[in-house]
Amino acid sequence: MHAYPRRIIDIKPEKTLPYDEGIAWLASQLKQRVDGFNCNPEARGIYLATMDSGAAASVAFWANALKHGPGFANPADFPLTLANSSAAVVSQMLEIQGPNYTLSGGSDAVYAAFSQAIHDLSASDESVQEGLVLALDVSETTRCIGMILTASDNQPSLGTIREDGVVESLAPPYTAESPTLAMSTFIQQFLNRGESYIQAGEGTIYCRKR
């Protein structure tokens, strides 16, 4: 089996939202734009790259505890302090019951998210059939951008994606700190030039239009 990009997703609200509202809004938008999965919920995986998921909620939760005392902090806000809270909300909304990854970092985390998804989708046990690979920013701006990858022996519409050695023919790799900026550049190059790549210490994710 191989992994192929099936759909591109790009969501940006018109205004910056508080963390809890932003995640809920993004999850509802994702549900509309994912266009359905072609496999059962247990064979869906999520691979989310983020640097700031849970950060603002942690600060807000502790500010609330300082203000009212630790014995009176709002318990409903606590789950949102965890860095994996965004992927948890999305997986619940989209019924993703397979692997649930949150990778912390910038462009390196985007690379790692793709690498993990390609690994899972290509595995011989075929336990993962579709993977939602997302980059997420939630602090200063709320943005979510990424791809649905699908496992197949036949090439679907968008093109091919693979993990590879260094790609010499393209421009130098983009090393943005923000995961959404890195993902956005990756996807824009793919759409405009027909091929793109993202690189980390361990290799290259290479994507080419069909």
């Binding site: 942690s58 502790w62 505890a65 902090a73 318990p75 789950p79 302090t81």
Partner: peptide, 12 residues
């Protein structure tokens, strides 16, 4: 983590 100590305690 004081945040976790508070959060788990407040979540009973």
């Amino acid at each position: 983590s004081r945040i976790a100590m508070t959060g788990f305690s407040r979540s009973r």
